[in-house]
Write a protein that binds this DNA or RNA. Structure first.
Lengths: 200, 200
DNA sequence: CCATAAGTTGCGTGTCACGCATCCAGTGCG
DNA sequence: CGCACTGGATGCGTGACACGCAACTTATGG
């Protein structure tokens, strides 16, 4: 998060990575879901101000570059849960952590839509969401005091939560749905923890 | 399923598709998770008895070819749920449908391991599992009489079930775990429908 | 038996990932 | 303050690949 507290080198490296992934996402959005093939590596590199060779020192496919932001964000979800007060019940802690983590700031509609509507990007996007599961499962296991090696509950719950986030995202993107992303998340997550009855 | 009841053309086409995907998976397994790059399109085509050009009339990437079986299987899960008796409670119906669908026959350990352990295949594998969610959600919505457009419960539950299947698969593949796949599935799915208490 | 549709194959092209060698800038030490 | 070193950036060359196109072969239906 903080650019300080790092080597100049490391800082510049992260900046480069960010510039490339940002440029990739921007160009992809410009071309739309059906023009992904028109986004050439050369263009991404140029837009990011680096050489094409450098681009694939960081990413080995356009998909990876475009979804890098999602990946990075997902990878950190576990920490958000760990940051919740220890006494808080699991469901409340997860909901709070997820909402806090995925709505700061409110995600970019165009970017998310691009990623989730483009078949060639879906695999990478799913990988990104799935990356959240490992850390999440660990954090859940800590909170419930279960052993992840023998008990499937943490991993299954983490997967369910990740799935709920995806579903909330899809729902939030649908035209005509004006609820905030936070609300969509809350509703989706409530289905995970209270499968008995859907609200209202 | 039945080769009869189809055009000679269609039959031959499916056979070709199957031959290619089977050859691709077999070669991938031979090389192991770290040698995927060594599986050349030329080899796959040769092993399947077709020209390289034909191979990519059917698949546009090695990953797609290797995971084709998983994809096809996942796409059919919804039907399995619809085939359950209408009066059966949702949880029992889902568990029965999933177990019946994913253990007939018992999946190939080597193939599943290859797919889930190879980073380059994970995206495609996740896409395959995710493809199950759409039909599953529809079937769940029918069974609960909810409107998928307004109620997130069917989609979230479908995603949770798909996630549980993935987790069960991972657990089943872990060395030292000798439970049957059906048992792993049952345990994982119980976490989805009864999140209150893990059955240890 | 013929006309048409559908599938297969070979070829050519544009793109890409990546190993390797080189160059340049930031870093830490004397 | 300068210097050797480490690590990232760049250029080049290579092997592989996806896909459009056109010719060829085989099923299908009249």
């Amino acid at each position: 998060m903080n650019d300080d507290a790092m080597d100049l080198r490391t800082r510049h490296k992260q900046a480069t990575r960010e510039a490339i992934s940002l440029a990739a996402l921007r160009l992809a959005i410009e071309q739309g879901p059906h023009g992904l093939a028109l986004v050439r590596v050369h263009d991404i590199a140029e837009a990011a101000g680096v050489s094409p060779r450098t681009y694939n020192n960081y990413f080995s496919s356009r998909e990876e570059a475009i979804c890098a932001f999602q990946s990075d964000q997902s990878r950190r979800v576990g920490e958000a849960l760990r940051a919740r007060p220890a006494g808080e019940p699991l469901d409340q802690a997860v909901v709070a952590a997820v909402i806090e983590h995925f709505t700061d700031p409110e995600p970019d509609r165009a970017g998310l839509r691009m990623i989730m509507d483009t078949p060639a990007l879906q695999g990478e996007a799913l990988k990104a969401f799935t990356m959240a599961e490992g850390p999440l499962a660990t954090a859940i296991a800590e909170r419930t005091g279960s052993d992840p090696a023998r008990d499937l509950f943490p991993a299954v719950t983490a997967a369910a939560v990740a799935g709920a986030i995806r579903v909330a995202g899809r729902h939030w993107l649908e035209p005509g749905n004006t609820v905030s992303f936070a609300t969509a998340l809350r509703r989706a997550l409530s289905c995970v923890f209270f499968p008995g009855r859907p609200p209202e």
